[in-house]
Design a protein around this nucleic acid. Structure first.
Lengths: 348, 348
DNA sequence: CTGAAAGCGCTTACAG
DNA sequence: CTGAAAGCGCTTACAG
């Protein structure tokens, strides 16, 4: 089953292989490979014949076969849940920026369910489909951590922390505290919280922000009330529904801290449709500072989303370049951005 | 160089291969492969031994090697430029939805420059890294069209049209006309247009919308003015700058039609900072109806972004399932959504 | 029911 | 400077 001598002999529909080129040029495949990879030490006349054959057959090497042979793909993969979320998008944008100018291409893989997460790691945990991984807002299952380490796949975590990998994150407890303190300082006492549902992928920052919220309340001498703490996904209608419940409570909160801007926006809409004025009757503070936040004047705790992606990408690039990176956790700064959705607590 | 008999013999760091499992279980690799792929006709006791060896070695087959051998990846790739743009994100969200429940995983690949576009197709045009392609808001170069067809890679276009592939699109000329007519009907005569820069990736809908704009003007007896037609990218500051120029014209337009909501938002910000009231002194209409549009009350021409992704994914799935799909262009409906950024032209 | 061998399409020592 | 061969890690006829 040797390569056939001419292009015409290849069945239509299947691209030429390196053997076809070799046959047409009258050389061995090794020589074609050398020309392809720009190795020195190929006689110019030979090279010319090979180049000619490549063009005649419209040949392009199989990147898959190359990857298998080279054990290198020049691709970086980003694995993240809900990757169409505004904050996730912003991080991805940072990753794209961080990778710009490098030789690596970016592949983004969505993890929407545990099933997809499993499949994602099946695809990537050997480092065959991508040379490095950027895992965003989720933690690999422990078994995958082992595989990744065993296979030596460079991996950087963004918005998640694990002792085995370097990571870029923020202090979520401090963030929750910061947001809540802002409300307390405005005189609010009845402060509700809308958090994310329990971690689906071992992803726990919502819990940390809740802890910060409780801490701030306690140190202000306010007793946390369980009926003021709700959970819901970031789907617009869910966020609205959760906020509506909160706003229909007999003792309605005068302020809401939402664990994300997306949820804060839902709370604002809920208030709007209930005829509750913001910030006169209700203050709302979010988390993230996504692009629309500035646009609609949402008060929020800003975390450097873009920067997190950029830094994560840079860190991964370092590792890929062979510079060993400590599995340290780099904390990015948080900043309170007071805009127009928070104000003094109503009298009474 | 036969597989070594025990796991311990494998160098740490390299995952077990099928040969290691076979050796440990005392069977041939073919048998391991059969067990792995759930083929019938393996004696239960043999199967048990294999399963045991798999677990002992924590073995997971190389998906890359599988792909090479099977010529199938169970992955669908989406190639799109500026994939963090709100409208692109929305389409991707639709694609994710359309793929949900299927056996295919989604990989997203960003095309930000011609260089990346070339690399994207190098990776995907043989159908080795993905079984099917969803090309969004860009057109493959003609040479790639040939390769894709030659290799028989199923490919669906979204927001782009090519005779060789089925596609999901909208009638952009009609859309441009619809937007402009809305302004004309409100009494505007000085109507400006902010379009995208010339197509970077043979991507021409902005031109079509401009054509619709001109057509609407002409049929209203309004002479198109070249100083009213500007181009700029969707980067926020660019959109603002372009709008500012327009609004500083001696004969300032009373209405702006932006080729995208993102640009419309930029125009609104520019007006704001120039102290121009909307819609009293300036009407602004966008295109797309991205999520924030409703939120900020932007009048726009709605195109079914989510639906385009969903339909594209479904179409691709059909093709992948072997049901031949005509290379037809499916046009999705456009709808004018009048909100609060457009109003009657100011007297005089 | 099972294994040896060929094949997927490359790259790269190794030997000339 | 160049080619035959082994290897990357799988799958699958083919022959028992």
């Amino acid at each position: 089953m040797e390569p056939l001598p001419t292009a015409a002999a290849r069945p239509t529909g299947s691209p030429a292989r390196i053997g076809d080129v070799a046959a047409l040029a009258g050389v061995g495949v090794a020589t074609v490979s050398r020309v392809l990879n720009g190795h020195v030490g190929v006689r110019p006349s030979t090279r010319d014949r090979v180049v000619e054959a490549i063009e005649a057959l419209n040949y392009r090497p199989s990147s898959l076969a190359r990857s298998l042979s080279l054990r290198r793909t020049m691709v970086v993969a980003t694995l993240l849940p809900w990757f169409t979320n505004p904050s996730a998008v912003q991080r991805v944008r940072g990753i794209v920026e961080g990778l710009t100018g490098s030789a690596y291409d970016l592949m983004v893989f969505d993890i929407e369910s545990e099933d997809r997460q499993r499949r994602a790691f099946e695809l990537f945990d050997r480092g065959e489909r991508a040379d490095g991984l950027l895992v965003v807002s989720t933690l690999p299952p422990e078994a995958e951590v082992d595989r990744l380490r065993a296979a030596g796949v460079p991996c950087v975590l963004i918005d998640a922390v694990h002792p085995s990998f370097p990571s870029i994150a923020v202090d979520d407890v401090a963030g929750g505290e910061m947001a809540t303190r802002h409300l307390v300082e405005l005189g609010h006492r009845r402060i509700a919280l809308i958090g994310d549902p329990p971690p689906e992928f071992r992803f726990e920052w919502s819990r940390d922000r809740t802890r910060g919220y409780e801490r701030a309340l306690t140190s202000a001498g306010i007793e946390p009330r369980s009926d003021y703490v709700r959970e819901g996904t970031r789907l617009p209608h869910v966020a609205r529904a959760v906020a509506s419940e909160l706003l229909s409570l007999p003792e309605r909160p005068t302020a809401i801290f939402a664990a994300s801007d997306t949820q804060a926006l839902g709370a604002i809409e809920a208030a709007r449709s209930l005829g509750i004025r913001i910030p006169a009757e209700l203050s709302v503070i979010g988390f993230d500072d996504i692009e629309v936040a500035a646009y609609v004047g949402l008060t929020t705790v800003r975390q450097p989303l873009l920067e997190s992606g950029r830094r994560g990408a840079k860190l991964l690039l370092e590792t890929l370049a062979g510079r060993p990176v400590e599995p340290l956790c780099e904390l990015l700064p948080l900043e309170l951005v007071a805009r127009s959705t928070t104000g003094p607590a109503p009298d009474r």
